[in-house]
Amino acid sequence: MRTLRLLWVHLRLGALNELQYRGNLVAQMLQSLISLAASLLGLGIVFSKTDALGGWGPYELLAILGVYFLVGGISQLVVQPSLSRFMEDIRLGAFDFTLTKPVDAQMLASIKQIEVWKLVDVAIGAGVLGVALAGLGEGVGPARAAAFGLTLLAGVAIVYSFLLLLATCAFWFVRVDNILVIFQSMYEAGRWPIGIYPPWLRLSLTFLVPIGFAITVPASGLVGRLSGDTLALAVALGVALPLVARWFWRRGLRRYSGASA
């Protein structure tokens, strides 16, 4: 409850503050639209040569694109900026102030910085998903919707935990500020179903950098291509990884405050 309230205040302040620079909104919209256009162009060229990519039809790939924007937008809206800020704070010593606050430090560090205009990406993601659903024609039944909702939630939890695990390394190593960029550059691979990649890359994108769980799996849930096993695995990881990340964070914090020394 407190978390939501704090998140809301951060969002509101970020928005109020950004409203002074409306140019940023235009710039972000332009960027997101260009990125969307590039993806659509790519899809267009691919589907001018084939009917299905690794078994995925055009609207199914559109669903992937929608999830790509949605999850990427959420991550860049709050998770990535906050965790970057956290690492910067560690480096500059400002993290001490986070620790003196009477709220959970992990929570505060995870929502501290918000890039409001990334909401544009979230909106684009929702829009593309809508178009994909309309195109798929057949109504998405409650089972698929539930599978999508569940896997999307798990996907966001997995991405957040993964990024938190990376960021927590800052407690041990000071110069890790661009470690999060790894995720961003690999996230690009999520525009396509990870099934098309060679096995070594597919495995890396599933278990090393969990982009498969963040994008392909929820999209599969939506278009009805999700197996029960994968669903169970996604949900299990979505529960387990946050716990692991939490444990790791606490270890980091203990080190930071010298409790383990």
Partner: peptide, 27 residues
């Protein structure tokens, strides 16, 4: 570290296109 991360991006990009087009070719 920055160099290594940059390399990942540089290498991954053509691999993505390669995977997409190989899949198209196979189909």
């Amino acid at each position: 570290g920055g160099l290594a991360i940059w390399t990942i991006g540089l290498v991954l990009e053509p691999v993505i296109y390669l995977a997409v087009w190989s899949t198209v070719a196979r189909s």
